[in-house]
Computed example of a mutant assay.
Amino acid sequence: MSYDELIEEALEARKMAYTPYSKFKVGAALLTKDGKVYRGCNIENSSYTPTNCAERTAIFKAVSEGDYNFEAMAIVGGFEDQKELGLCAPCGVCRQVIREFCSDDFKIILLNGQTDGKNTYDVYKLSEILPLSFGPEDMKIKPRK
């Protein structure tokens, strides 16, 4: 699947966002290594703390179905009345959840506007947006030196 197609999947996921409070809709499309796509959207709650982001929704959907091998994720977001969407990067909590299940070279594709009616995007490695990360391997006992 191309990154253009993955962005389109994220745009479709964004349509399902439940954002009665912030009106800021986010969609994510998570691509597995075997080509399956899991969509996620943000889902707000009036007390805000239980709100769930699009990125985590997509990952939790995949993991709950036994998929753990991920290749890339496209993320799009903006206020519901925005005609043209700009850059929307994952929050810190989502970056940490992504790190739990993905390698440092996992690709994150962020919509960065439209030019001549075509979506433009930037591609980052997880290690670029979450440097010096703490991951599952850090939970292992390490010998003293």
Rank of each mutant, 00 (worst) to 15 (best):
A72Q: 05
V76P: 02
R99D: 08
E84Q: 12
A89C: 11
C91A: 06
Q82F: 15
V93F: 08
C102D: 00
P90M: 03
K107L: 02
G86N: 10
I108M: 06
K83D: 08
K61S: 14
A89P: 08
C88E: 02
C88L: 05
E100T: 13
G66T: 07
N69E: 13
A89T: 13
L85M: 05
I59L: 15
E84T: 13
E71I: 07
F101P: 00
V76E: 00
E65S: 15
G86R: 12
D81V: 13
D67R: 15
E80L: 12
G77Y: 04
I98V: 04
Q96H: 12
V76N: 03
K107W: 00
P90W: 01
I59E: 04
R99W: 10
L110Q: 01
D81M: 13
K107A: 01
D104C: 07
S103N: 07
D81C: 11
F101I: 00
P90E: 00
L87T: 12
A74I: 02
G92A: 10
F106H: 03
N69F: 13
A62S: 10
F60P: 09
K83Q: 11
Y68C: 12
E65H: 14
E80D: 11
Q82M: 14
Q96G: 09
T57F: 11
K83L: 12
V93M: 09
I109R: 06
E100I: 09
C102L: 01
G66K: 12
E65R: 15
N69C: 11
K83I: 12
K61A: 14
N69S: 15
F101S: 00
G92E: 06
V76R: 03
D105S: 04
D67T: 12
